Simulated scan of single mutants.
Amino acid sequence: MQIKYITRTRDDVELPRLRVLSLCSGIGGDVAALEYAGIPHDVAAVAEIDPIASAVLAQKFPSVPNLGDLTLADWSNYHDNIDVLIAGIPCQPYSVAGRQRGVDDRRDVTSDIVRIVGEVRPRYVLFENVAQYETLHGGKAFSELRNGLVSCGYAVDHRVIDAAEVLPQRRKRLFILGCRGDAGGSPSQILADAASGGRSADACGTTRLPSADATSGSASVLHPPRLGTLMASGSGMNRPGMRGHELDFLVVQEFPQLGLVMRRPTPLEALRAQGFPDDWFDGVSFAGKALTDIQKYKLIGNSWPVPVTAAILASVFRSSETGRLSQAA
């Protein structure tokens, strides 16, 4: 599966650049989404503590500061100076793959996110997590986040979107979008637009995102039609044995002169299944060595579905432009 990335400019029009703050940044899936949608942007800073993911960010975006632990960072320099704050809130406290301790898990940063939003006051906020974030323990964390955003002056809505609509991977994720009162745009409409399949995800043109059916690979691949959900543990990608849901990663493919071959997805296929360009890891190393396959699998599984995020951010960008024009008038 090969996804074509979109870059658009409008003739004779200088598009405004979104100033972005990326928290829990991983390998920069949110930046990949901005690039996918052709959105002019500047990343003010990232915040990531995982050493391997931080190495990826440092080498791909050498001029962007990494603030590290978001619970300790100073946000005063970004007050009223950010268009979009994006965070892939850690999913380990909520995922069915973990113990689901929710807000009692030390890795939960919900209260910190609310505090940071209040200090930074971005025009838009976008958060992503597993679907269980909305319901686990009576929705305690979700309610804390939503109520905190509302108290900070944001209109808020949320939606679970399955990346299988545009990618050969089953990946249901909860997206939470907030628009500050003076920003323009409706979070409900923005998310509905993205959930329609991302068909209007191109921020600066009219090109549509491909459907998953059109990008699921060669006809010689007999199983699976879509991969299972890529996970931060690398589950299903490299363990000696496979069972249960891990069988969703058993690729059965017919090769000329070899016949049927059973194999696992390669790191490149995993990268494509998440929607990244093929060269995202090119030239990236950790501790002086090229990234191993297991490191790549884990980094990819912990990231965003790029085209879905691009669809949301593209609609945010259009709303942002409309809001600026209204203020100017």
Rank of each mutant, 00 (worst) to 15 (best):
137 H>N: 14
315 S>D: 08
159 R>G: 05
228 G>K: 10
327 Q>N: 11
198 G>L: 05
162 D>F: 01
324 R>F: 06
248 D>P: 00
220 S>K: 04
58 A>H: 09
211 S>E: 15
258 L>D: 08
20 V>W: 03
75 W>P: 01
201 A>D: 00
210 P>Q: 08
177 L>Y: 04
167 L>T: 00
256 P>M: 08
315 S>V: 06
142 F>S: 05
71 T>R: 14
212 A>V: 01
321 E>P: 01
128 E>T: 08
74 D>K: 10
120 V>F: 05
268 L>N: 11
178 G>A: 01
299 L>V: 01
248 D>R: 14
256 P>Q: 11
118 G>D: 09
178 G>K: 02
24 C>Y: 10
155 A>W: 07
84 V>T: 03
59 Q>T: 07
5 Y>G: 07
163 A>Y: 06
19 R>C: 02
300 I>C: 02
246 E>P: 00
306 V>W: 03
207 T>Q: 15
202 D>H: 03
177 L>S: 03
240 P>R: 13
316 V>C: 03
199 R>T: 10
317 F>D: 07
163 A>L: 06
100 Q>F: 06
9 T>A: 13
272 R>H: 01
115 R>V: 03
22 S>Q: 10
103 V>D: 12
155 A>M: 11
225 P>H: 06
87 A>W: 04
122 P>G: 01
258 L>K: 13
172 K>R: 14
301 G>L: 09
31 V>T: 13
245 H>W: 07
134 E>M: 13
198 G>Q: 02
135 T>R: 08
120 V>E: 00
57 L>I: 04
97 A>L: 14
153 G>E: 07
51 P>D: 10
76 S>A: 12
158 H>D: 14
217 G>N: 03
308 V>H: 04
63 S>C: 06
114 V>F: 07
295 Q>V: 03
86 I>T: 15
253 Q>M: 11
287 A>R: 12
241 G>E: 15
224 P>I: 02
62 P>V: 10
10 R>E: 15
318 R>F: 06
113 I>A: 06
163 A>F: 09
149 L>V: 08
222 L>R: 11
322 T>R: 14
129 N>Y: 05
117 V>L: 05
59 Q>N: 06
90 P>A: 05
284 V>Q: 04
118 G>N: 12
43 V>K: 04
283 G>S: 03
88 G>W: 11
